[in-house]
Simulated assay, not measured.
Amino acid sequence: MADISIVQEHRLTPNKAREAAQKVADKISAEYGLECAWQGDVLHFERSGVHGSLAVEARQVEMNIRLGFLMSAFAPAIEAKVTEKMKAVFGAA
């Protein structure tokens, strides 16, 4: 098992931050085949071997990913890609 935690600051309004979170979710779900669902201001995602959440807060977003045994070998590459996508989407503000 491997855990990934990424915090990205932003200067977006709550609605814009949620839209940006959805963009990140759309990108990672297409790339990794994840199912996504909102629960309040937290976007939950999962697939076999991967589950996690993306919490949208006033000045930051926090993504937590738990990888199963087989996926844990790819943790560094997954963390780098997700960090890059979050910076591109949330850091642009």
Rank of each mutant, 00 (worst) to 15 (best):
G40S: 07
D41P: 01
V42Q: 06
V42E: 08
V42T: 13
L43Y: 01
F45L: 06
F45E: 02
E46F: 01
E46N: 06
R47V: 03
R47I: 01
R47N: 09
R47K: 15
S48Q: 12
S48R: 15
G49I: 01
G49E: 04
G49K: 01
V50K: 00
V50I: 10
H51E: 11
G52I: 02
G52W: 02
A55E: 12
A55L: 13
A55W: 05
A55V: 12
V56C: 06
V56S: 04
E57M: 10
E57H: 13
E57N: 12
A58T: 15
A58N: 10
R59G: 11
Q60P: 05
Q60K: 15
Q60F: 09
V61R: 05
E62F: 06
E62Y: 08
N64Q: 11
N64T: 11
I65C: 13
R66E: 13
R66V: 13
R66H: 15
L67I: 10
L67M: 13
G68H: 14
G68W: 12
F69W: 14
M71W: 09
S72Y: 06
A73E: 09
A73T: 14
A73S: 14
F74L: 15
A75I: 05
P76N: 13
P76S: 12
P76D: 12
P76V: 15
A77C: 09
I78N: 02
I78H: 03
E79Q: 11
E79A: 14
A80M: 05
A80C: 07
A80Y: 00
A80Q: 07
K81D: 04
K81H: 06
V82K: 00
T83D: 07
T83Y: 06
K85R: 07
M86E: 01
A88P: 01
V89A: 08
V89C: 05
V89W: 00
F90A: 02
